[in-house]
Design a protein around this nucleic acid. Sequence first.
DNA 1: GAGTGGTCTAGACCACTGT
DNA 2: CAGTGGTCTAGACCACTCC
Lengths: 264, 264
Amino acid sequence: MANQYERISTDLRHQIEAGELAPGDRLPAETALAESYGVSVPTVRQGVGVLQAEGLVEKQHGRGTFVRRQPTRVTRDNLRHQWEKDRARETESERLKTGATEHDTGLTVNDLVFVAKYEQQPADADFARVFGVPEGTTLLKRTYRTRYSEERTPFNVARSYLVLDMVAGNPDLLREDQEPWPGGTQNQLHTVGIELDRIVETFRARPPTPEETEELGLPVGVSVVVLRKTSVDTTDRVVEVSDVVLPGDRTEMVYTTKLNRWPA
Amino acid sequence: MANQYERISTDLRHQIEAGELAPGDRLPAETALAESYGVSVPTVRQGVGVLQAEGLVEKQHGRGTFVRRQPTRVTRDNLRHQWEKDRARETESERLKTGATEHDTGLTVNDLVFVAKYEQQPADADFARVFGVPEGTTLLKRTYRTRYSEERTPFNVARSYLVLDMVAGNPDLLREDQEPWPGGTQNQLHTVGIELDRIVETFRARPPTPEETEELGLPVGVSVVVLRKTSVDTTDRVVEVSDVVLPGDRTEMVYTTKLNRWPA
DNA sequence: GAGTGGTCTAGACCACTGT
DNA sequence: CAGTGGTCTAGACCACTCC
């Protein structure tokens, strides 16, 4: 270990992994660390910065540097798509009997504090291609900002797009004060006669933009998972596109692929 | 914008987004930037560090700081699981006719340079639980290090685990010089009479450990996607567990969920 | 050898937190 | 108020790349 700052980061990392520094504990002040390691304060800061990028510690201005607790993680799985579809045709009272309804986040409504915003916008080239409609077709854009009710930091930002003409048959779908819609998107689509055939989810992880860091209250070093969910109906028409930004360290995805049997 | 370093990072970010600094371009030297912005070199370094964490630039020691090109991205989708299953019972010559075979990475064999290592190890508590076998049961551990043949940096590290007794019926499966096995894991399992019912994939994004940064040659700021693939056979028995570490910025995942039709 | 980024020093002053 | 981390300076020397 030639570098001073690596010596410091590996030493502190070992202390954290060994439990000598437990989650929630405060690290010694940077001046104290500088003295005990015999280096300057900027060098200590560089070493601690490595741990911060690894998500092991979190700095709080004026308070100190703390060992991070594992954030509450939320599981998002694809079996809920079928679950939601099975319930989409039931009445509201029936749904309440069988369990909480869901949203695009995969969370139950009771856990959520969220704000919906409805807008209309013309389809750009990208959306026109995805939906298979002419450019400029009016889209209904619904933006959901979601918080996990027991925590301060927002959980995600989701932007859902529908072709306005497709859903205009039910005026309730155009009113944001109807949110949270009890039954999810598939139930909403059922009210205008749309049945889904499949859902395609595409996603990747990347570093957050400055706006996303701000919006999601992300700690330094964690990536966001950006997910585009495309819903296709039984006539092979794309009926909904939903872009979701999730904090990478708090989201666990589970996808089950059921395979056909071999012929006997 | 109170801070000098934010002034620098936002200014350079705008130049990159506007295309004034194109991918592959070298930024001015840190001393030159310090002079033109009227700040000290460490302050410039702090500002450029922000862009580095965002994945916009890459520093190369002794060469300069460059605007990053979008890395070649590899798509991993779940439809290939059915595709692989359909071919698992065909002969090798039939498979060669219908197209290249695949591996756990979702890449075709021809694109890959990879190294396999076979080991045997007793199941720890975690694996014993997942496989539903007694602790200490001998597992076959296969480690694959994969490079995308046209690039320097390794693409992923995959560790696949099988219960040794389950696959010992075909001695070829225990020999690492048989790799790359032309037909994938499902074909290997077919040779010992195993048919898969479903595949469950669980994953999340997190900052890389120092070892992973080293092993995958990751640029600063990008997360890894860690994926656990569990294969379940037609008797509801877990037959393979595969842990894959992927660079978050180079991997795109696509999952299609097919939904059952509503009864008429 | 010239030019680049990487490490490090020894301070200064500011901004935020808690008492 | 004292203590903490955040920003910034003006250098020094080293390690790497390329000519």
